[in-house]
Simulated scan of single mutants.
Amino acid sequence: MRDCRTVPCPVAARCKATKWRYQVVGMGPVLRRRVLRANSLFLMAFGGISIVIGDVRSIWFAPGPWEGMLRGEPSVGIGPLEAHGLALLLGVLMWRASRREVERSWHVAAAAAHVFLGLCNILLWDIYALTDAVFLGYVSTTMHAVFACVEVVAAGARRRPRVAD
């Protein structure tokens, strides 16, 4: 049996026998909340603006920015509408999750979402060229890559023992 007075207890957040407790290595809980909150703002802003300015306008009130992609068939717009709507909803969920201490699973989910969205941007890059939105494609794809990396770091933050004050 280990002596809790000399070695930190690995199973408890705070060992009752000693002053040992755990802290997050590299990224504290406040920074992790801010990362998820910034992430959610990005998704809500890009998703919401894309729905209003691009999707709704192009599908129902032509002409719009996606006019070249739709080619007179508004039902083709279901893909961008769903993608931007889901980005908006993910942003809202992440915002709600960032209101308290963020669990690791939220960072994993956020990283996975950004990897998926960024990969879709790259694989379907022709849509950006077709709609003359290449600069917007660069910005959004770069931001997806940045947020995916930051969320992986936040998800990988682990606890290490330290002595309480």
Rank of each mutant, 00 (worst) to 15 (best):
G85S: 15
G85K: 09
L86M: 12
L86V: 11
L86S: 10
A87D: 09
L88Y: 07
L89E: 01
L89N: 02
L90D: 06
G91R: 00
V92S: 04
L93Q: 10
M94W: 10
M94A: 14
W95V: 05
W95E: 08
R96S: 07
A97Q: 06
A97C: 08
A97M: 07
S98V: 04
S98H: 02
S98C: 09
S98W: 02
S98R: 03
R99E: 13
R99Y: 04
R99S: 13
R99A: 13
R100Q: 14
R100I: 12
E101F: 09
E101V: 14
V102M: 05
E103F: 06
R104L: 07
S105C: 11
S105T: 13
W106V: 08
W106C: 04
H107E: 04
H107G: 06
V108D: 01
V108Q: 09
V108A: 09
A109P: 05
A110G: 05
A110M: 02
A110P: 00
A111F: 03
A111M: 06
A111E: 01
A112W: 00
A112I: 03
A113Q: 07
A113M: 07
H114I: 00
H114W: 01
V115E: 01
V115G: 01
V115W: 05
F116K: 02
F116P: 01
L117K: 03
G118C: 06
G118E: 03
L119F: 12
L119G: 12
L119P: 04
C120Y: 12
C120T: 15
N121Y: 06
N121F: 08
I122L: 11
L123W: 07
L123T: 11
L123D: 04
L124S: 14
L124E: 12
W125H: 06
D126Y: 13
I127H: 10
Y128D: 08
Y128I: 02
L130Y: 05
L130K: 11
L130G: 04
D132Y: 13
D132R: 13
D132N: 15
A133Y: 10
A133N: 15
A133W: 10
V134P: 09
V134S: 11
V134A: 10
V134K: 12
F135S: 11
F135Q: 11
F135Y: 12
F135I: 15
F135V: 15
L136N: 15
G137R: 04
Y138S: 01
Y138Q: 05
Y138C: 10
V139F: 10
S140Q: 15
S140G: 07
S140A: 13
T141A: 04
T141Q: 00
M143T: 09
H144M: 11
H144L: 07
H144S: 09
A145L: 13
A145G: 11
V146Y: 01
F147K: 04
F147L: 10
A148C: 07
C149Q: 01
C149W: 09
C149D: 03
V150S: 00
V150H: 01
V150E: 00
E151K: 02
E151R: 01
V152T: 10
V152E: 02
V153W: 02
A154H: 02
A154M: 03
A155E: 03
A155M: 03
G156T: 12
G156D: 09
G156P: 01
A157F: 03
R158A: 14
R159G: 11
